Computed example of a mutant assay.
Amino acid sequence: MYVSTKEILNKASKEFYAVPAFNINNLEFLMKIIEGAVEKNAPVIIETSEGAIKYAGNGDIYRGARLFVKMVREFAETVNIPIALHLDHGKHMEFIAAAIRAGYSSVMIDASHEPFKENLKITKEVVKWAHASGISVEAELGQLAGIEDNVSAEKNVLIDPEEAKIFVEETGVDFLAPAIGTSHGAFKFKGEAKLDFERLKRVKELTGIPLVLHGASSVPEKYVKLAEEFEANLGGAKGVPAEEIKKCVKLGINKVNTDTDLRIAFVAGLRKHLKENPKEFDPRKYFKEGMNFVKEVVMDRLEFLGAAGKA
């Protein structure tokens, strides 16, 4: 079932669990994410970045957005779980317009790099625009350090809970991504993860809407080790431990973005298969092991976030 992201997340917020949002760039990732969600009888959110849209459309962002909607709808309408399609980190209005016109379930306006008042102003306009088409909106307050696709920042700027209350009330945004100490990419922390749980708790109390955790890949050690066994260079990769994410869910996180974990799992399987099968040149075959690892990651996330069985 192709549904509104707001529908999925409002239910998660009321029942105190989180739904993973998985980034895709191609058909193979989409298939395995949905397979895993169906097996776990769980709702799931598919995400595309601006870069993914441009890639899929071979430079034409409107074609790329339409292609993703058609792919996701085709799968969603043949399975009995709720599936939504979300634009992740929309920083440019033309990409947000392309997603809205194509029929995405929701869009993110990421103006977190702007001063508070400008972020509020921009977000308010996007909310007005998207809501007119029945599309829900995510925004971000504070900034996450790290690099991922078109997102880049040198340091974390944590959210101010009082500003979050004003922001939500004035913009009418449907869900909010608060910066509480996570980072984008595979190299999140030099030491132990340090998330500001009290800040998160306060934001939930003051806003009352579904909250989103960005930069939340766990970077599973077994896939990092496997990839490195087959000559990948991922030394120092470190994510957010599953137990820390579970704490965030208990305090009000309802959507957890995941991209890096899928990429590392896939590249581990791909490198392994190509090394062990040097004569293989059929992508349907040499993708298979990596895609099975992607499915494992998907099913694990659905379980520990509490989304399994919630379809």
Rank of each mutant, 00 (worst) to 15 (best):
L158F: 13
E163D: 13
I147C: 07
E118M: 01
H184Q: 05
E148A: 13
E138W: 03
V157Q: 10
I159Y: 02
N119L: 06
H184P: 10
A177S: 10
A164R: 09
Q143G: 12
A179N: 12
T182K: 01
K128N: 08
N156K: 06
K188I: 03
P178F: 04
F175V: 03
D160N: 11
G134N: 07
K124N: 00
E140S: 02
I147G: 10
S183R: 13
S152L: 11
L141K: 01
N119C: 02
L176Y: 00
A139V: 06
A130G: 14
A153M: 04
A132Y: 13
S133H: 14
V137W: 10
V168T: 14
S152M: 15
G181L: 10
G146I: 08
H131W: 05
A179D: 01
E154N: 09
I180L: 13
A130D: 10
F189V: 09
A139E: 04
A145L: 04
E163Q: 11
L120G: 00
L176F: 04
V127F: 01
V157R: 12
P178V: 04
G142Y: 02
G172Q: 08
T123E: 00
N119R: 00
A153Y: 15
I166Y: 07
E170F: 01
T123W: 02
D160Q: 12
L141G: 02
F175E: 02
I166R: 09
G172T: 12
L120K: 00
F175R: 11
N150T: 11
F189S: 02
E163N: 13
N119E: 00
E138C: 05
F167I: 04
D174L: 05
A139C: 11
E118T: 09
N156W: 10
F175I: 06
S136D: 12
T171S: 15
A145V: 07
G181V: 10
V137Q: 10
V168E: 08
E170I: 00
V137G: 14
A179W: 07
I159A: 10
G181C: 14
E163T: 08
E162I: 05
S136W: 14
A177M: 01
E125Y: 03
V137F: 08
E148Y: 11
L141E: 03
L141T: 03
V127H: 01
A130C: 04
I122F: 10
V126N: 00
K124T: 03
N150W: 14
A179L: 09
E118I: 05
K165S: 12
G172P: 12
G142F: 06
I159G: 03
D160L: 10
N150K: 14
A145T: 13
N150D: 14
V126M: 01
A164F: 09
N150V: 07
A139K: 09
K155T: 13
N119V: 11
K121P: 01
K128I: 04
A177Y: 00
F187Y: 14
S133N: 15
P178E: 14
E163L: 15
F187M: 02
E138S: 06
A177T: 01
S152K: 15
Q143P: 13
D149F: 08
P161E: 09
K124L: 00
E154C: 08
E118L: 01
A164P: 05
E154W: 11
L120S: 02
I122C: 00
H184M: 12
E148D: 12
V137P: 03
H131L: 12
A145D: 08
S133P: 05
L144M: 12
F175Y: 15
E170S: 08
G134D: 13
A145C: 06
L176P: 01
A177V: 01
V157Y: 09
E125A: 07
